[in-house]
Design a protein around this nucleic acid. Structure first.
Length: 287
DNA sequence: AGTCTTGTTCGACT
DNA sequence: CAGTCGAACAAGAC
């Protein structure tokens, strides 16, 4: 599933393919609900003739900055993929949108689950206003992170998945970051000590940076898995230490990795390296 | 055949 | 208002 490192990989591949500078000639929506915020025909009309000035990323959004100051946002959600085709190529099953460029290339959005969305933003900052800091940028400070964690009583894992707290983390990197920080996923966010917050902050950065260097995570060979532009696989699966490794020995202590459900999401951790909250002397713990 | 999986939004609560 | 929680979306994987 595309999380921050996977979207970053796609953005870099789009840049390498020369999308910056390309002129949009036409957009066809094979699944009209892919267009969000306005009807598909209206969105297509608004984009026709625009020049893509730059390609960037904000959280899990791919941002195509346009020559009129607006931006085209693409969110791949769970199974969205982008590839280049030309006019002679037959569409594949699950193709949802085709962006034709003036040079004849067609950027195709393929998405088995139909959750991927494309929308037009007058200003990126306004549209993505509610999203929290970019974890790899200077704006993601320990102090700001600590303040956000402190006012939440939910499981810290659920808070990491909350895009308004920190941008771009999904199920894989939430579990991996918590393991690296040696924090149990069901600990209450507000219960983390200053040291634990610092560890988690560093773990998030390290985990995401490593995954970007490996071009993202592709697990197994299912078609619904992550593939970057041109079907390129990510190499980060070998760096994963707990995600979907239940039953395997913990790389640090050898005990079996366990799987639970937290906030409705599959969650993987080592019960020895990530101990549950220590019961405080004299204070009874619920259930 | 039935259950599981995932990111985000939305509405109903507290 | 701010935080919490579960449903909804969709269809392939297993």
């Amino acid at each position: 599933m595309p999380e921050l490192p996977e979207v970053e990989t796609v953005v870099r591949d789009l840049r390498a393919a020369g999308v910056a500078g390309a002129v949009i000639r036409d957009i066809v929506f094979l699944w009209p609900r892919t267009a969000a915020g306005m009807p598909a025909a209206e969105l297509a009309a608004a984009l026709c003739g625009r020049v893509v000035r730059a390609v960037s990323r904000r959280a899990k959004y791919i941002v195509l900055e346009l020559d009129d100051g607006h931006a085209l946002l693409i969110h791949l959600r769970m199974t969205g993929k982008l590839r280049f085709a030309d006019a002679a190529d037959a569409p594949l099953p699950h193709d949802r949108a085709q962006f034709s460029f003036a040079d004849g290339r067609i950027l195709v959005l393929n998405d088995t689950r139909k959750f991927a969305r494309v929308c037009l933003a007058e200003r990126v900052a306004d549209t993505l206003d509610a999203i929290g800091p970019e974890p790899l940028e200077a704006e993601f400070t320990v102090a700001r992170f600590a303040a956000a964690l402190n006012r939440r009583r939910r499981a810290v894992k659920s808070v990491l998945l909350d895009q308004s707290v920190v941008a771009g983390i999904g199920n894989i990197y939430a579990d991996e970051s918590l393991f690296a920080a040696r924090i149990h996923p069901e600990r209450t966010a507000a219960s983390l000590s200053r040291g634990e917050v610092r560890r988690l902050h560093a773990a998030i950065r390290g985990t995401l940076a490593l995954a970007i260097r490996a071009n993202g995570t592709t697990l197994g060979s299912a078609a619904t898995n992550f593939y970057s532009v041109a079907g390129r696989r990510g190499d980060n699966a070998s760096n994963l230490r707990v995600f979907r490794r239940d039953g395997c020995p913990c790389p640090c202590c050898g005990r079996g990795i366990r799987r639970t459900v937290v906030g409705g999401r599959g969650t993987h951790f080592c019960s020895r390296c990530q101990p549950a909250a220590r019961r405080r002397r004299g204070s009874a713990q619920r259930s």
